[in-house]
């Protein structure tokens, strides 16, 4: 059990490292370096830039050294909490990301909870009552959920809300809380606004999980131990929840590792359509404006949060499956 945890932890570290390299690549890829862009920007706004100032900047970011040194310098800066400055906003990157990162997490986590809360009972019902009318209806909804990309769903729901209810259903806060400081009232306002983005983000995942749960449970329901349990005289509901559902939970939980990155991904683009004050629109803007330190940092943070989510789900999985606990994997 300990070795498993350590293995997972090392893998998570490795993944974070890979993400940092990719984030650095994103910062590096555009033609021209950061300092050139920064100086050009300063110059255009009328600030006189001395060559010494430029040289200082170049050295700070190590732009005159080979790429791997630049990467190491960047990492060094990050470990000191310096993520660079945003070209566009002219403030440190962290100041801009701030709340938006936590709001992204709030949206994503509530979407995961929504996905699970819905997919689990529906999947169980669909499998146990296979080929019932409800099963067909759920399967149909599931396929729609699978086929409609989340940003399209957001667009359609926005259209419906705007057209038929005359309301803008986007956003995460009511206007009166938009600029307000955090308070219980604001938190409650946020919670009230979360279900819609959670629904939109979660639909595709829910559809997938229903299918996974249904298929797994159908497999499990055919196994002899179900007949054994039935022959004991257990009631059907208790039996199904204790034995086959328990077994079908494993692949279900292990999907969390992939569900989380999937939802974070989706949240970026859905936030754009719904006008959520999360990190998605910021990332897009940074990318379009070639504000690369901001963009790279956002990708890095999103990656790290995803890896953490995946790591937690792995530990959860180990905790539920005795076979993994005993280190007799497959």
């Amino acid at each position: 059990m300990l070795t498993y945890t350590i293995r997972r932890f090392l893998l998570a570290l490795l993944t974070i490292w890979a993400i940092s390299v990719l984030s650095f690549a994103i910062i590096q890829l555009p033609p021209g370096d950061y300092v050139t862009a920064y100086i050009a920007q300063l110059a255009s706004s009328g600030v006189d830039v001395t060559p010494e100032f430029a040289e200082n900047l170049r050295q700070q970011y190590g732009l005159d050294s080979p790429v791997y040194v630049q990467y190491l310098k960047w990492m060094q800066q990050i470990s000191r909490g310096n993520f660079g400055r945003s070209l566009e906003w002219r403030v440190p990157v962290l100041d801009i990301i701030g709340d938006r990162l936590w709001l992204t997490m709030a949206v994503s986590v509530s979407a995961v909870l929504f996905t699970w809360g819905l997919a689990l009972p529906i999947g169980i019902y669909s499998a146990v009552r296979q080929y019932s009318i409800a099963d067909y209806i759920f399967t149909f909804i599931g396929f729609i959920g699978l086929a409609v990309p989340s940003f399209l769903l957001a667009l359609i729901l926005m259209y419906v809300g705007f057209r038929y209810f005359g309301a803008n259903i986007g956003g995460l806060f009511s206007p009166e809380y938009l600029q307000a400081d955090w308070s219980l009232g604001k938190l409650w306002d946020l919670i009230k606004h979360l279900p819609l983005p959670a629904l939109i983000l979660g639909t595709a995942g829910t559809a997938q999980l229903i299918r996974i749960m249904r298929a797994n449970l159908l497999d499990e329901l055919r196994k002899p131990y179900v007949i054994t349990a039935r022959a004991k005289g257990m009631s059907e509901l208790r039996l199904i929840l204790k034995y086959p559902v328990r077994a079908a939970m494993n692949p279900f939980i292990s999907t969390l590792g992939y569900l989380f990155p999937f939802i974070i991904s989706g949240s970026i683009i859905v936030a754009l359509v719904l006008g959520l004050p999360t990190i998605g629109p910021l990332l897009l803007r940074a990318l379009v404006a070639q504000d690369m330190f901001l963009a790279g940092t956002i990708v890095l943070f999103l990656g790290i949060l995803t890896v953490l989510g995946t790591f937690i789900s792995d530990i959860l999985l180990m905790w539920v499956d005795p076979r993994i606990r005993f280190e007799r994997r497959e």
Binding site: T15, I19, G303
Partner: peptide, 20 residues
Amino acid sequence: EILRSIPTIPLWMGLAAAMP
């Protein structure tokens, strides 16, 4: 495993934005 645990859209966005 590493590739699969990276959120794809931000990554794609980053790479796509880097296209000249």
